[in-house]
Nucleic acid binder design. Structure first.
Lengths: 243, 243
DNA sequence: AAGAAAATCTGGTCCAACCAGTTGACCACT
DNA sequence: AGTGGTCAACTGGTTGGACCAGATTTTCTT
């Protein structure tokens, strides 16, 4: 009960104590083990319980606070918040790690749906208001994408870089930040099956046409094509009921 | 140079040292004062510079790390990252605080655009796959919304609660988290002019019809109406060029 | 000049206090 | 019984100093 890292893997995969503690508490909150409204264990007690220093606990709790998973008040107790009402998109990472809550498959579908929604509107806005220079860069990047290696991972990276140009061109910072949250947050965790994404990644022609629509300022056509292209990877799985 | 809080407001609006330091460093990064790729001042030096303890500095840096504004490595220097490539949607708060970067007006427009985009798709999905119970609750909540006070702030709160039901009903956790990020992140900072929002908030009939579409499982009609309703508040300001 | 060793940077962790708000039990007074 | 105030015991917030651990730079040896 005194160390967080197992004695195995002595010098491999070292992770900061506060990071481990953060992940542990985060998962307990997301998993519902720590109910919303209930009080988190006091910092001193947490430190004693896990055999770590109180500062490490504080760093972890501070991150929980920033993620809006808990509400701390000087002198009072630290209360667990309802993440479904307070947590932000950045939390998508690690939501899958929790036992309860949405499954990895559901989260993957949700992230892909959001990607399609944002991507389509970003393409539309990009066609409307990106600079001529940005449009030219997108067209040029399409050529690089076409010459991208046959390796699926490499192709995926090139695809992300290509889409980033479009999202940047949309001039919408919120879309840009959400794009970041999805790219290095939700999607890597989800591990979308390759078979699902090939239909999108291998269609170089669709990428070329989309770039053309943007450069030609055909906003509606760009939006429709983007939505169609990005929807291919969305698993058509319907959940029966919510809540 | 030794105290962060001004001597005025002695006991009013006390803020934790680490929170002040976090906000200060965050704004410097977002404002471009600290260039991406450059090294952040060492923790010991920051502590000395601001006359605070190193532990407070560490808590602030830890939050910067979680926000993906910096990259810290044990033994090496802490590097400033390019927030446009790494930061997530939760950062929308405080982006306006930075001097450089997007203006508050631009950020408000971006947030409203994203709200319309997500809201429309959430309404569509809600009509497709929310439970009968959830649909009934949305219809019922519409009645409460109609009886909501004439106060614009109260009406706005009721509106947020009403949309939350729809986003919940969509069954998409990513949408739910993004909704949270927008509601208690970007939108409050933006302070959308009331005149802009009245066209949306006062139209109770549109809310009633939207709830009806969802209950009737008319996905396309719900999506179109939601998009139209949410687009009313978006300022039709076009920026000339991006980048 | 090349490589090894040492000094010295960096962040990570710990201990032991103390400051500053909050809470609640307790007691005096009405 | 009800009210109000005091005080002890929580809680989180902050500080100082020490030391560990990884990365970098310098220095010395070969």
């Amino acid at each position: 009960m005194s160390t967080l890292i197992a004695m195995t893997q002595r010098h491999i995969r070292r992770e900061a104590v506060s990071d481990q503690l953060f992940a542990l508490l985060r998962d307990r909150i997301l998993g519902g083990e720590l109910a919303p409204g209930s009080a988190l264990t006091a910092e001193r007690d947490l430190a004693a319980e896990y055999g770590v220093n109180r500062h490490a606990v504080r760093e972890a709790v501070k991150r929980l606070q920033q993620a809006r998973l808990v509400e701390v008040s000087h002198g009072g107790r630290t209360l667990v918040q309802d993440w479904r009402r307070t947590a932000g998109l950045d939390l998508a990472v690690g939501i899958a790690a929790a036992d309860a809550g949405p499954s990895v498959e559901d989260l993957a579908r949700d992230a892909l749906e959001m990607r399609a929604c944002i991507g389509a509107d970003a393409a539309r806005l990009c066609a409307i208001r990106c600079s001529e220079l940005a449009a030219a860069q997108i067209v040029e990047a399409t050529g690089r994408y076409a010459r991208s290696g046959p390796d699926l991972a490499e192709l995926g990276a090139a695809d992300v870089a290509w889409w980033r140009l479009i999202v940047e061109g949309s001039g919408n910072v919120a879309y840009l930040l959400a794009f970041n949250s999805l790219v290095d947050g939700a999607l890597p965790v989800a591990e979308v099956p390759g078979a699902l994404r090939t239909g999108e990644l291998l269609d170089v022609d669709a990428h070329v046409r989309l770039a053309g629509h943007i450069a030609a300022r055909e906003a509606e056509a760009a939006e429709l094509l983007a939505r169609e292209l990005l929807s291919r990877s969305v698993p058509a799985v319907l959940r029966k009921a919510v809540r």
